[in-house]
Each structure stands twice: as C-alpha cells, then as structure tokens.
Design a protein around this nucleic acid. Structure first.
Lengths: 131, 131, 131, 131
DNA sequence: GTGGTCTAGACCACT
DNA sequence: GTGGTCTAGACCACG
C-alpha cells in the first residue's frame, strides 16, 4: 500500500480514496482485519486524527466495520464490494469520456491512448477484470 | 456552452476548466471575440467578481488576450492551443488509467467500456481528433 | 429473556439494563436464583468477563445478592424493587415527554400515539401496572 | 435555543440532536440562515471544531446546506423536514413504549403519566401538532 | 492496546 | 468573515 499524498486536495479525502481502492482491488480482503488507527496513521505519515476521519468515512460507506474496542475489519459483504466497484468504474469511465469528448477527442483516439498506457505498463499489477 | 456548476469545488476553478474546454474544443475559435465579463457572468449565473477571476486565469495561461479598449479575444496561437490540448489529454488519460488499474481493471476492460460509451453517444459532437 | 445487543453502546451497560428490566418486570422473581455467570454469558453471547462486570453493577445497585458459596439471588426486598421501578418509569416518561415537546408534539398527540402502540400489541405481555 | 450539554454522551451527538430539534420544531425555519460555526460554538460553549463536526452531520442528513464560503442555510425542503419529524416521533414513541412495556407498564398507566406531565407544563411551548 | 472524543490553535481558500 | 482542514496532544471507556 503506497500512501502518495498530494496537497491539492484534502488529505482525508485522499486517504478515503486509497483505502477504498485497497478494498475494491482486493488488497484488503473481505473480512480481514484493518490495521489500527495509529498504525495506518504512521504508515501514511498523518495525524491519527486525520486517519480516523478517513476511517469513519469508510465505515459510513459500509466498507469497514468497527468492533468498538477490538479493531476494525473489512466488510464480508463481497457482493457489496463488487457492486461498489462496478459503480465506481462505470462512473469514472463516463465522467472521463465526457471530459475527453468535451475536448474533441474521438472514441478511437481514446482507445489508442489506452493501448499506449498499456504498453507503458500502467495496467500491470493485480488485475481482477470485470465480471 | 453549458455552465454546470457543482458546489464541491471552487467555482472559479470550474469556470476556468469550462472556458479552457471551450477553447481547446474549438467552440471558442482562435482569434474570436470573448463575451464581456458581465455577459459571461450572467450566462454562468455567477457574480462578475468570480468570473473575472476565471478570466484572469485564462489570460495568465495565455489562452485569452485583453486589448485594453476592445475587450478580450481568444489567442490566435493555434500551435499553443493544440499543445495545451495534447498535454491535457495525456495527463487525463494517464491519471485515469492509473485509477482504473488501482481498482483491478485491465486495459481490455477499459477499451470495452470506452466502446460502450461510444455506443451511448457520449462522443458525439465536435470531434477534432488527435493530430 | 432476549439478549439483543447493539454496538453503538457499551455492551456491559446494555446487559445491566436488560437484567434490571428482568427484575423490575418480575421475570426474575424476588428471591429467586440467578443463573451462573457462565450460563448468562453463554446466553448473551458475551465473554464472561463482560457479564461479570454487569453482575457487579447489579449487586452495587442492590438488586442482586451474592452468597459466597451458593451463587447469586435476586433481592427479596420487594419494596426496593417497586421503588426503583417507579423511579425508572418517571424518569423515562419525563425525558421522553421533554424530547417530544422539543419537536412540537402536544400531549394529545402523544396519547393518540400511545393508543396506537397499544393496538399494535406493544404493551401485551406481563403487565403489572402502577400501584 | 438552550445548549444544555451532559457528559454522559459525546458532545457532538448532543449538538446534532439539539440542532435537529431546532429544525424539526420550526425554531430554525426552512431556508433561513444558520449562524456561523464560530457563533454557534460560542453559544454552546464548545470548540468550533466540535460544532463543525455536528454541522457536518446535519449536512449529511440533508437538513442543512452549506454554500461554500457564504454560510449555511436550513434546507427549504419542508416535505423532508416534516417526513423526518414524523419518523423521529414514531420511532421515539415505539422505542419508549417498548421500554415501558418491558417494565410491566400498561398503556393506561402511560396515558396517565403523560397527562401528569402535561399538568406539570412540560408540553408548554411551540406546539405544532401532528399533520 | 483499541477506538473515540475533545481542545487549542493555526492556516488556507473562497467570495 | 465564511467554511474547511490539519496538527499536536491529552484523556477516556472498553475488553
């Protein structure tokens, strides 16, 4: 898990995004234990406070579950995870295509660009694929 | 030109983005006249103050030029426009592919999704294509 | 006895509340034997440690009594039970009415709502009534 | 608006409850301006930070709307307010009746107790009544 | 040791 | 002046 934080966006939102990705990509397995607030904060080099805020958001979205005094776990609801993943993907793709279309790019251009990214190895890693 | 503003981001940044798109997509042709601050502000339903700030940003990036007495025009430097357009496109594509890869999507998945968007007509409109 | 535990409140407090109710409603009769810590813990699906803490609280409030060798019993002091019951009831009613009043509800509204609950059978069960 | 805070519950939750009441009872009229974070914090004698947290919750529940840099307003969606109010009332009443029933109180007892509260003037104030 | 809450205080971007 | 973010650090209840 890489904690690459930029300063053009609230940190806690970036943390939420990264944690979400970790769950959706399967890096954080369903039902598995989530590191403690302090550990995660240390990893991301952030105040425990800030990390806590991100974790709270994760709980609200139902991806994490907190057991009052015995740590957090990733939800076991794999269906929910998969559904959320599809939503995210489709939403992202659509928003992106709209942006590109707005700048006068055709679908074929886009496909070419994606293939270019593939050759650059951007897609290498844990590929789950679409169901 | 549609002025669709959300409240989860600074308004002036959204204005800049939309104006940039208008230039890069050719909707605002090189060398053509830019509407007055008041008109634009009225169109976007924003205070002239905020629009002014967006226009200033457009000048700084060199896409708009002010002629003290005769209003603003889009730059005639087509090369610059094209260059900026390419930068934007590549940056967007890369960031996007990275996000998708982070969620376990393969390049082939992406291409399929883009084609799906094409069939939905998202790419219909003023297509300039890549040079 | 239903052990319905939520996770938005300390577990042991919920246990205390449920045990108290069992005594005040007469489900645990005055002078009767209280199940062992292990049995109760098993019933409530809680670690004996937590249940123990709840039982301690019950002793402090005088509703349970421990006889070193022969386990626990419910107090025989019916007067005390009845007094506590009245306190609980009045406190609850007042707090509740204050909340409702805060939301602009009249006493007549409340009575109507209570009657509605009655028809729904919420009050069915062991009704002792007020003395 | 009285800010009566106890220490047996997280402060920010109490703030949320009070703010909600203020909206549901009509004290904070639909569409009206909400005092600034700092003002509210000063009123409630709480850190702006804590108040902010409560306000955030109010926004998430849709009762408040924040206009990025120009303050907050109560939602204008009176229907939503009324609906939420009914939900709250019914939920509260049911939970309460269940508690009372658990202690062996009959519906008639409850009605008598409510009437007693009425005579004590607990219901005096801004009475909207049920629709 | 776990999550959670709160304070005090600073800083920033926006309008 | 508005809302928002973040830090640093302390404290608490729970199991």
């Amino acid at each position: 898990m890489e904690w690459e934080l930029r300063s053009d966006q609230p940190v806690y939102l970036q943390l939420v995004r990264l944690l979400k990705q970790a769950v959706l990509s399967g890096e954080y397995a369903p039902g598995s234990r989530v590191p403690s607030v302090r550990d995660l904060a240390a990893q991301a080099k952030v105040t425990p406070n800030t990390m806590q805020r991100a974790l709270q958001s994760m709980e609200q979205s139902g991806l994490f579950e907190t057991h009052r005094t015995s740590g957090r776990t990733v939800t076991q609801d794999v269906q929910k995870i998969e559904q959320l993943r599809c939503e995210q993907v489709q939403q992202s793709v659509q928003e992106f295509c709209r942006t590109m279309a707005g700048m006068g790019i055709t679908a074929n251009d886009m496909i070419a660009l994606v293939e270019q990214c593939e050759q650059e190895g951007i897609f290498d890693g844990n590929n789950i694929g679409m169901r």
